[in-house]
Amino acid sequence: MIAELLFAVFFGLLLLGIHRKVIARIQRRPGPPVWQEILHMLKFSFKTTWIPKTASAALFVGVVLVAIGIWSAALFVVISGGSLLVIFAIYMLHKIVEHGFGLSSGSPYGKFGGVRSVISAASEIPLLVSVAAIAIFTHSLLISDIVSYQEVHGPLLITIPLAAIAMYVVLISKMPFGPFSIVESKELVSGYKTEHFGVWRAGLEVCNGLKTYVLLLTFILVFIGSLPFWLTLLTMLILVITLSFVCALSPMLSPYDSVTVQTLLAGLMLVYVGVLGVMS
């Protein structure tokens, strides 16, 4: 499992690098090399580091540990075919991590990043909707059961395409440079991660790599099914490129617009799953 963990970190960061490269090419910029995010992680870990004078020290450091820990746990849950509800829980608790990053330093920019992450709570509802829609069909939330259901009945992507779209929106809202990335937008310097520099930021980059890998892997396992390893990686790459197109071609929304759009989407999805539940 150690090998899988390290692979997930580096491949996730590589995907984020590809994300940046594709966005740059769409916008006709040369862009950084694809391994830039991996270099970033290493670069930050070599830098001078301290805990700000005003920070709440234990929380400032502890939240980095929690961030890496929860996503490693999520990776193991996905690999072992555990409950989808646990993945959902970890995804929601990532919000607390953002909040902790933002508030623990005492920086005004970090604080606004943290508050923004709290007000965009509606971005989690689509995930709950896709979980509920899946439960209606498979009668189980274990990822292993969902995979074996798809081997018999064909991919869920075809059965419930709108639930797949809901999960895709969730992926968009967690990708950097997307329309909903208000927590790290540049008018807040770097949002919630402004004051986490040096080694702390390196830890955050590790978490980002893991998070990207886990979310994409979950999407593939839940909506397409079990694929050979190389094909899984290829599908992840294709997914990232489509996400890059969305991120490159859409402007970042203002905080209130972002929350409104997310709430509307969440409402639509709730209606959809209600209809699905009545029909089945």
Partner: peptide
């Protein structure tokens, strides 16, 4: 997770918000 964050409450001093 509830336990971990309760421990944080126990051991950490509040930050000074600037």
């Amino acid at each position: 997770l509830a336990l971990v964050f309760t421990v944080f409450v126990l051991i950490s001093r509040p930050e000074r918000q600037i």
